[in-house]
Computed example of a mutant assay.
Amino acid sequence: MTQSTKTKTDLDKKPIAISSDAFYFEKDKSQSILILGVGNFLMGDEGVGVHLIQEMDKLELPPYVDILDGGTGGFLLLNCFESYNKIIFVDATMDGKEEGTISLLRPKFASDFPSALSVHDVGLKDMIEAVYLMENQPDLYLFTISIEKVVPMTTELAPEVKKAIPKAIEQIISLSKTLREQIS
């Protein structure tokens, strides 16, 4: 079922993989948490954030959780930061840790984000700097999944990176529940 064929009742019951700007005007998101997967889907492990969002889209998620495939969006994602009070990013990192390691960071500045691996590096960090210039900044959380290499022109994930996705989703859902309790 596509978003355009869902009724308003359906929108209230199940989280949505956001795919259009119109969604931002359909629902009050002050009580919602956005899970934002970023990365380049065509660069192997570097796209793990996008793969994770695709897996979350198959699950029955709490109604206060929205998910978004942010791709390499950069400044195109700024309206998310105006709409949500709490945002959980998911991205790949080459931090020297064992492949598939999941880490949670609380970035306060763009420089707190780990070095990105492809073209979304400049856009993401610049966008985060712009967020900190906004009147109201959301609370940001960043889950990283450690990778060893970037392989251009493939959508395949390394086995350890792929195995990390369900574990990361479990941690994200747990954090979402905790954050939801803080909002209420």
Results as ranks from 00 to 15, higher is better:
Ile165Asn: 00
Ile102Asn: 05
Leu77Met: 11
Ile147Trp: 02
Ala168Phe: 01
Leu68Lys: 04
Ile53Glu: 00
His120Leu: 10
Cys80Met: 07
Ile16Arg: 05
Glu181Pro: 03
Met56Tyr: 09
Glu160Cys: 02
Lys177Thr: 13
Thr178Met: 07
Lys14Arg: 10
Asp139Lys: 08
Glu129Ile: 06
Ser184Leu: 14
Lys97Asp: 07
Lys125Gln: 04
Lys97Ile: 02
Lys14Leu: 08
Lys58Val: 02
Ile18Tyr: 10
Glu55His: 12
Gly71Phe: 02
Ile102Ala: 06
Leu179His: 09
Ile102Tyr: 07
Leu140Phe: 10
Thr5Cys: 08
Gly70Glu: 05
Thr5Ser: 09
Ala164Pro: 09
Glu55Leu: 06
Val65Cys: 14
Pro159Phe: 12
Ser118Val: 05
Lys29Val: 15
Ser83Trp: 03
Leu104Lys: 15
Asn79Asp: 12
Asp95Arg: 00
Leu157Ile: 12
Ala22Asp: 12
Pro138Glu: 01
Thr93Pro: 03
Pro152Glu: 04
Leu124Pro: 14
Val90Ser: 04
Lys167Thr: 02
His120Thr: 12
Tyr24His: 05
Met153Glu: 05
Thr72Phe: 01
Gln3Ser: 08
Val119Trp: 08
Val161Gly: 06
Phe25Gly: 04
Ser146Leu: 07
Ser176Lys: 08
Leu117Met: 04
Met127Gly: 10
Thr9Asn: 08
Ser184Phe: 14
Leu104Cys: 14
Ser118Tyr: 11
Met134Trp: 02
Thr9Gly: 11
Ser20Gly: 15
Leu77Cys: 11
Lys167Glu: 02
Ile53Cys: 08
Val161Phe: 12
Arg180His: 14
Ile53Tyr: 04
Pro62Val: 01
Val65Ser: 07
His120Glu: 13
Gly37Arg: 00
Asp66Lys: 04
Ile67Trp: 12
Lys108Met: 11
Ile67Ser: 03
Asp66His: 03
Met153Ala: 08
Ile173Ser: 03
Glu98Val: 12
Leu42Arg: 09
Ile128Met: 11
Ala116Gln: 15
Leu52Phe: 07
Asn136Asp: 15
Tyr64His: 12
Val151Met: 13
Ser83Ile: 05
Thr9Trp: 09
Met43Phe: 14
Glu99Lys: 14
Gln182Val: 06
Phe23Asp: 00
Thr178Val: 14
Glu60Phe: 03
Val161Met: 10
Asp12Ile: 08
Ile147Thr: 07
Lys97Gly: 07
Thr101Lys: 07
Leu61Val: 03
Ser32Gln: 14
Ile147Cys: 09
Asn79Tyr: 15
Lys8Ser: 15
Arg106Trp: 04
Tyr64Ser: 02
Phe113Trp: 06
Pro15Gly: 13
His51Phe: 13
Met43Lys: 03
Ser20Phe: 07
Phe25Ile: 01
Thr2Ser: 11
Pro166Tyr: 08
Thr144Leu: 01
Ser32Asp: 07
Asp121Trp: 14
Tyr141Lys: 03
Phe75Cys: 03
Ile145Leu: 02
Gln182Ser: 13
Thr101Arg: 04
Leu157Asn: 01
Pro166Trp: 14
Ala92Ser: 11
Ile128Arg: 09
Pro63Gly: 00
Gly74Lys: 01
Leu140Cys: 09
Ala158Gly: 15
Ile53Thr: 03
Asp28Glu: 15
Leu61Phe: 09
Met43Glu: 06
Tyr132Ser: 07
Tyr141Asn: 13
Gln137Met: 13
Lys108Glu: 03
Thr101Phe: 06
Ile173Met: 05
Pro15Lys: 02
